[in-house]
Amino acid sequence: METTINIKLKVWRQAGPKAKGRFETYELNNISTDSSFLEMLDILNEQLINEGKEPVAFDHDCREGICGMCSLYINGRPHGPDDDVTTCQLHMRKFKDGETITVEPWRSAGFPIIKDLIVDRTAFDKIIAAGGYISVSTGGVPDANAIPIPKEDADEAMDAASCIGCGACVAACKNGSAMLFVSAKVSQLALLPQGRVEAARRAKNMVAKMDELGFGNCTNTGACEVECPKGISLANIARLNREFLKAGIQD
């Protein structure tokens, strides 16, 4: 049986990077609790367009929680009140009838606002470009089990690799630190033999780029881990510290 709710939305509107932003309040009626948060925003935008107003700009792409494009700081939490989901996987059944929902962009110096709820996350791409890859000699496909890898290592590498680079960690961090993201990207490769070859260089270059782009220093509060839609663990940050300090000692 479908139930519907009426809600009030308090949305951050900002015309451009340098423009002064403000909150606008909109009322939305008969929103199905089965709809996703982004579908609700689509309904809002349709309503705004019909009224001849400018629709709210927000990031989205796959809408199934794997691309890392959707963001949004909803009612005091990145990706909203549900745990381990992205905004696109958040459902309206998590909200009450008559509730006022505050929607803000990620706020961190490393992620400047482009428009409304969209922030510039190219800093993450630059960090990846600084070393988040392996230089593979392409050739024939190797045998699947030619290089034995312990199950635990494979599991932990896979867990680290589930980071979608959405930036919720930075948005939740009181220090504007990107350490959870960088540590996941370093760990997914550092745990596997193929990634070991460039491990020292990778850790140094990615951390240097992270510092250069103005992200803060990690103080191990753990807010990032709580808000990460993919449950990336703080253990990755300890591993990044290890990899980085080991690389420093080798010099």
Partner: peptide
């Protein structure tokens, strides 16, 4: 440095992240 990295803007809806110790912040 961390205050600078965080930027001047604060969240209007506050911080409702659970499980973060007061001491750590």
């Amino acid at each position: 440095e961390n205050r600078k990295a965080r930027g001047p803007a604060r969240y209007a809806s506050g911080k409702k992240t659970t499980g973060v110790t007061w001491a750590s912040q």
